[in-house]
Simulated assay, not measured.
Amino acid sequence: MTRRTDTPPAWDERTQLATFLDYARDTARAKCEGVSAEDARKAPLPHSPLMTICGLINHLRWVEHYWFDVVLLGGELAGPLTEATDDAPDPEMRVAVDIPLSRLLAEYEEQSARFRGLVAEHDLDTKAERPIRDGRRVDLRWVILHLVEETSRHNGHLDIVRELLDGRTGV
């Protein structure tokens, strides 16, 4: 069972931000516990064919890659994100149904551990190497806050999908 807490071990800003991001990540993982391999690939919302548990977890993994590796550090897009187009903007959600949920969760956790180190090693005021759409360069603090929001929003999607698949609610 996934153990999670939103109470930080210290009250400085970095620890609070990191704790909330980990809490959101852990919540996403908890929402996947006990789901069958078959259900993890199903899209129960008729007008949202990409909204699968596998798709959502893979999306969270690649969203973090984008914001930490690409925007903050100035790296290059990798993996399925390189295939995004205006007509097909979420390739990470499409390809996820061909990957076992256990692998997606393991990759998400490995990457999360790496990004925990990045957050610990960089000043919260560190400016991103790449600008966002409006031309401004966000800082690490903003990236963490954005990822807390993004992960939490998708946790709501995981709630809905899970309830429709097997009736499990909460977590």
Rank of each mutant, 00 (worst) to 15 (best):
R41A: 15
P8G: 02
V97C: 13
E76Q: 10
D12N: 08
A43P: 09
E149M: 05
R162I: 08
L50M: 13
L72V: 09
H59Q: 13
A43W: 11
A96M: 04
A113E: 09
E163K: 02
D98I: 06
T27F: 10
E83K: 14
I132Q: 11
H65S: 08
R94P: 02
A84S: 06
D86G: 09
H122S: 09
V138W: 15
V161K: 02
R29L: 15
D26M: 10
G74K: 04
L45Q: 14
L56W: 05
G135E: 11
K42F: 10
L81N: 07
L45C: 15
T27I: 10
P8N: 02
T5W: 03
V119N: 02
A37H: 13
R116S: 03
N155L: 03
Y23E: 01
R29Y: 12
D26H: 10
E13W: 00
P131E: 14
T7D: 12
V171M: 06
E150T: 00
Q111S: 04
P80V: 02
I132L: 15
D134C: 08
E163H: 01
T85K: 06
K42M: 14
L73M: 13
L21M: 09
S36A: 11
L105Q: 01
A128P: 08
H65L: 13
L140C: 07
R130G: 10
P80S: 01
R14F: 04
D87I: 03
H157N: 00
K127Y: 11
A18N: 02
T5H: 01
R94C: 04
P131C: 07
Q16F: 12
I160E: 12
A113N: 03
A10T: 12
R103D: 14
V70I: 11
H65V: 14
L60V: 09
T19D: 03
A96E: 03
A106Y: 08
A18M: 08
D123H: 05
M51E: 13
E121R: 11
G117S: 00
A106F: 05
R3V: 12
